[in-house]
Nucleic acid binder design. Structure first.
Lengths: 233, 233
DNA sequence: CCTAGTCACTTTGGATCCAAACTGCAACTC
DNA sequence: GAGTTGCAGTTTGGATCCAAAGTGACTAGG
């Protein structure tokens, strides 16, 4: 564990913890004891506390006075609401991106698109191997995220990108990709969506790109929310 | 300085500092030395550090390793971008609010609206008293914020509200209300906007409410951005 | 048998201490 | 004269220490 470039230990810990929460390695609702984390990362409690403060500030953990910190839970309703906001913002991003696509952006989008397609192909040729399916789903989920982020970058509006990314971090990735694993139908549907969105983007049809990405994100959110409903009920 | 209800000193400090930055009491670009802040608030450096970490996490200050923290600067371009995102989200909020207005919400909106109107009236009867004008502007700005927040609350979507509020906090209030003081024309214009928006909301015309609030926020942002341009140039 | 009070234990919050990193200046070398 | 190296001063980062708050169990009393 090097001291990292330029940043402090607390920043590293915050990133690390955020990643572990968001990927599901640390489950929602867990208690986070400072002492344990300090021991796990081989540091004293001070940087751990500062990291927890950061996570608290972005709403990922809840600090109970003198009683430890909890990883915040995530309900189906909250999921719907988060995706509602994301849909709106990503729609805006698509609109802006369509209007200002550089050649560089275009190749980025197409590369991400290609990644999704090969992921889909690999998925389609897969049998009943659950373990392999889960891995593919996770990879596909990452490619999916990359695709969305490329569009956000092309929109050339840092606050837009940052806002969406903080919303992305509200939804544990584990939920997103478990959703895929649970309901394989959405992978081909999603692939089609992406095809159409890419078309609209490269064609420069801002209005259509916006509408398509909006409903696509909304659909994704609804699927995730239904999965959460089933889990909870 | 009591220990505050339930929360820790660090949380209090974070709120306090955020308020001072956002109201302009601590100017943008200031250096924040932990020792000074600790002395000012009568605590040790530990809670100050944790508070700074929180502000860093939400992007309000920039931590330079071993060289102190800076209150982040704010450019005209960034201002435009933030308001672009806000416009989109507040438009969505208006759309949702129009569709689900309870009687309670309605009276809230009308109360906020009344506050704005009296603020405007007081402003209109004012002479060349700069000091008084500044105070009125600040109050008017607060009423304005209240009005927007009431709509956000009526939209019944916590992530939407939280996201917009974090965007609101990106723009120092001092900029917003100095803008008003600088260009008095926008106060009556803004009052008209609010009238029309309120009309659309209580009439339940979601589409119109959305469009009106969207352009209203965009206008406000553009005015603020132009003020920043003049300051910078 | 149930309830209230107390006491030990756990865990965080705040203060203090020490080490490391960055700054600026001054002196020295080429 | 310009550039570099070293040193003192300042400020943050991390560790440790102590106090306070919350928890849970055990006991005594009704």
């Amino acid at each position: 564990m090097e001291p990292a470039r330029g940043l402090s230990r607390a920043d590293d810990l915050a990133r690390e913890l955020q990643a572990e929460i968001v990927t599901g390695r640390i489950p929602l609702g867990s208690r986070l004891r400072q002492e344990d984390l300090a021991a796990r990362f081989g540091v004293s409690r001070t940087p751990v506390r500062e990291a927890l403060r950061q996570l608290q500030a972005i709403g990922l953990v809840e600090q109970l006075g003198h009683r430890g910190a909890l990883v915040r839970q995530f309900s189906a309703e909250e999921c719907r609401n988060v995706y509602l906001v994301r849909a709106e913002l990503e729609g805006l991003a698509a609109e802006r991106a369509a209007g200002r696509l550089t050649g560089y952006d275009r190749s980025d989008i197409e590369a991400a698109q290609a990644l999704l397609r090969t992921g889909y192909a690999r998925y389609a040729t897969l049998g009943g191997d659950d373990r392999g399916r889960a891995i593919i789903c996770e990879q596909w989920s990452q490619a999916n995220e990359l695709y969305h982020n490329v569009i956000l970058a092309a929109a050339a509006c840092p606050p837009l990108r940052d806002t969406v990314q903080s919303l992305q971090n509200m939804v544990p990735r584990s939920i997103a990709w478990r959703t895929f694993a649970d309901d394989p139908e959405i992978i081909p549907r999603s692939a089609d969506d992406h095809d159409r969105i890419t078309d609209a983007l490269v064609a420069g049809d801002a209005r259509r790109a916006r509408r398509l990405l909006h409903t696509h994100v909304l659909d994704t959110g609804e699927t995730a929310a239904r999965w959460l409903d089933r889990q909870g009920g």
